[in-house]
Simulated scan of single mutants.
Amino acid sequence: MPSAGPLQPADPERLGAHRLLGRLGEGGQGVVYLGRSEVTGEHVAVKLFHAPAEGDRTAPETFGRELEMVRHVARFCTAQVLDWGTLGDRHFIVSEYVDGPPLSQVVAEDGPRSGGALDRLAIAIATALVALHDAGVVHRDLTPHNVLLGTDGPRVIDFGISRALTGSRTMASKVVGTPAYMAPEQLEPGELGPPVDVFAWGATMVFAATGLPPFGNESIPVVLNRIAHHEPELGGIEEPLRGLFAACLAKDPALRPTAREVLDRLVGRPDTAE
């Protein structure tokens, strides 16, 4: 059985049609459990979100409607969303279990990626973004923590969650995302589209190649100021990846390539390569 920590006394024993076997981790959004489907018998990952503040509660029907979109995302390079529901006023999402560590952990323990390993990682994550955007889904929080290096290749997880929790395409009163990987437009009110994911892809790949995000990892105000006003630090990244990463990190979202253009450049299609 996959490795997981024990359940704590306050943890539920099941969510929906899924028996919980242990804890895989806990973060700012909620707790992730290892579960087993009572229908298929397969292992699943179940994310139970923390109880929202009174004014931040999203109706179950809105939550489900937004997550229904992610069912249309092609399954290659992503962890498929299988089910969702509520426990009291807390939402949960059930997704395909990926047996592998996050990119953030691998880089911290083994160092930055390079050569063919970096190329394969870049192509896999870009492919996942193409699948998401083709299905009309914007991730809005792509980071090294949300890329799992499974035994069958990298998988992007937690897509569609931020919009499902807010029920909105726009950034309004709260910042949604991980500061070091957020695009400048996520700091201002307005609609958030696929370019925010392309920016996050560039930032994630810089981390994979150097071990540091392109705008540093100091305090949140310092990082956000750099994102808004400074050029990214690209370390010793060589061309052609250096130029591609820089293009994805453009301040103006209109100047960034699309995810499909990124993928085309990575695989060297002559009509898009520079």
Rank of each mutant, 00 (worst) to 15 (best):
L241S: 10
M69H: 15
R71K: 15
V46M: 02
G88T: 15
G167D: 03
A172D: 13
L48Q: 04
P102S: 08
D56Q: 02
G216M: 04
A273R: 13
A246P: 01
R256E: 02
C77Q: 15
G268D: 05
F245Q: 09
A172F: 01
R265Y: 14
D141S: 13
L20E: 15
W201A: 09
A74N: 11
A128N: 13
A183Q: 10
V262A: 08
V32W: 05
T151S: 09
A131I: 06
P195C: 03
P257A: 03
P195E: 01
I123M: 09
G190H: 05
E66H: 14
P60C: 04
A273E: 10
P179V: 12
R75L: 15
V206L: 00
E261W: 05
P214D: 03
G150S: 00
T127P: 12
K251A: 10
P270S: 15
G41D: 00
H50E: 15
L129H: 10
P2C: 04
D83H: 01
P232H: 04
H133G: 08
V223Y: 10
D264T: 07
H72T: 08
R226H: 08
M205Q: 08
V46N: 10
N146H: 09
V175A: 02
P60I: 03
T78A: 04
S104D: 08
E185F: 06
D264L: 09
A172N: 15
D152Y: 05
Q105E: 12
N225T: 15
A51Q: 13
R269W: 02
G216Q: 04
G30I: 03
G177T: 08
T178H: 14
L148Q: 01
H229F: 00
A254N: 09
E54M: 06
P213V: 02
R120E: 14
G153M: 11
L48Y: 04
V147P: 01
L118G: 00
I123W: 07
A10E: 11
E42N: 06
E68Y: 07
D158Q: 06
E54S: 01
E109S: 11
P60V: 05
F215I: 00
T62Y: 10
L212P: 08
V156F: 03
D158N: 01
R19G: 08
L149G: 04
R140A: 13
Q186S: 15
D119E: 15
A126M: 05
V32I: 03
R256G: 02
H91Y: 02
P221G: 01
G88V: 13
A135R: 04
I93M: 09
K174H: 13
V267W: 00
